[in-house]
Amino acid sequence: MNSLVILNSVIDEIGSALLFFVNILKTLMRRPCSRDELFQQIWKVTMQSLVTTGLAGFFVGAIMAVQFTLQMREFGALGYLGGLATSATVREVGPLLIAFMLAGKVGAFTSAELGTMRVTEQLDAIRCLGADPLQEIILPRFLAIICASFFLLGLGLVMSIGGGILLGGLLAQVSVEEYLRHIPAIVTLSSIANGLVKCFIFAVILATVCTYKGYTTTGGAKGVGLAVVNTAVSTMVGIVVADWLTSFIADVAIRAFVGSPF
């Protein structure tokens, strides 16, 4: 009984989040937000997360290099280290980790900001002044998160290649040229497309969840804290599921059309 109630409320939440998403899309079609506001938000989101994603990217690259070194040693195929680590980062780990980091940073920040606006009745004030909070407040943040996550993904990838090169040199004595040489061969266009699609889907999930949770906050300081926690958790769950779905669909599609995953 109890688990049924929980399941029911989870489905309820997902449903209202989807409706909220549709509302945002409708607003986007009918009344786009001001361009200045949008650029300002993109700038804000990007600058806020620059250091975090850069750091995370660097160390993720380093971790991948350490792990792949250990594996490739078995085969004496250390030359492929750079290509493999980069490919894994582009296809999978990069988008996933950037999304996780953004969920903690931008997602939590946005829901805290919107939640504070909600509990201090600023959102109601906007409505009373005859403006649409969806258009004025939510939409620019929503679009900004999606745009910024592509910039940040790029930064994260560059930093992770940097981290990989450093550790590859340190641990496996793979020189920079050696490390970079195999990247073009292994990281194919389809891999890059795969990474970009994932990045886009994760960003949409993140942007929807954090604006939705912030917009529907209730209950003072405690409520804001709760909204932030819920945002981070639900975003991560959503991202992991979406990650599996995209990987799985890509795999099935490739098998269906090409025969084997190359």
Binding site: G104, F109, A112, K222, A227, V228
Partner: peptide, 9 residues
């Protein structure tokens, strides 16, 4: 309210 959100983030 802002303080709690910020601390959490």
């Amino acid at each position: 309210a802002e303080g709690v959100g910020l601390a959490t983030t």
